[in-house]
Nucleic acid binder design. Structure first.
Lengths: 106, 106
DNA sequence: TTTAAATATTTAAATGTTTCGATGTATTTA
DNA sequence: TAAATACATCGAAACATTTAAATATTTAAA
């Protein structure tokens, strides 16, 4: 006797308006910010502000500015830990953005 | 007797460098250009320059500028037809961009 | 071969972005 | 409580983008 399992995943896509889409695209349109996001892959989706500053060959105010763009676009979620700041990658917003892009093809 | 078909699609993902990714994201970070891309859904993936100019409440040179951004990012493929210009949505590049975004999550 | 139509380019003004130095604000440690 | 650490904000310079008016180019039609 065999059982066949059909596995699938339901993704609840929060529909994104154009303003939001534009903001995310703009946040993604900078070399430093792309570098930042790619680092999350290596650190299991969470990174500290200080680690990012080391990574980037930019001054601390510049890094702060870039992180603000990513947080304002909801791509990163900031979590305060004492006087340090931890950032978590917001995969849901990334998925919503991807869904909006896919919708352009239908 | 039953036959079960497992259907799948192999997508050949052309790996995209950060420069390219940045260019596409920037092309997508403007309200007018988002509006342009969304129109393709309604017109089966191809649109004429004149249709886009009507759509956009901008002067012809401005529209020309926006279309250039999208073409330079390879999101649109221009095809000359006499003195008209037809644009075709480049779904492959869109897929590559989506793949690069998905890769941020791994 | 003029003339008209469709699109591109140039130029310039207005606006937005990136960057850094200087400074401000929390928070922890001495 | 004073000093140190981590991060944010302000102000200004450099640079990029958006937009439109004017003009150029390409192609088709008269």
């Amino acid at each position: 006797m065999f059982y066949t399992y059909l596995c699938f995943r339901i993704q609840f896509v929060r529909m994104m308006d154009n303003k939001k889409f534009e903001k995310i695209a703009r946040a993604l349109s900078d070399a430093s910010r792309i570098t930042i996001l790619q680092q999350f892959k290596k650190k299991k989706g969470c990174l500290y502000c200080a680690e990012i500053t080391e990574l980037l060959d930019l001054t601390q105010p510049s890094v702060s500015h870039h992180l603000k763009q990513l947080v304002d676009a909801d791509l990163l979620i900031p979590e305060k830990e004492g006087r340090n700041l931890k950032y978590v990658l917001n995969e849901e917003v990334l998925d919503d953005y991807i869904s909006s892009l896919s919708a352009l093809k239908d």
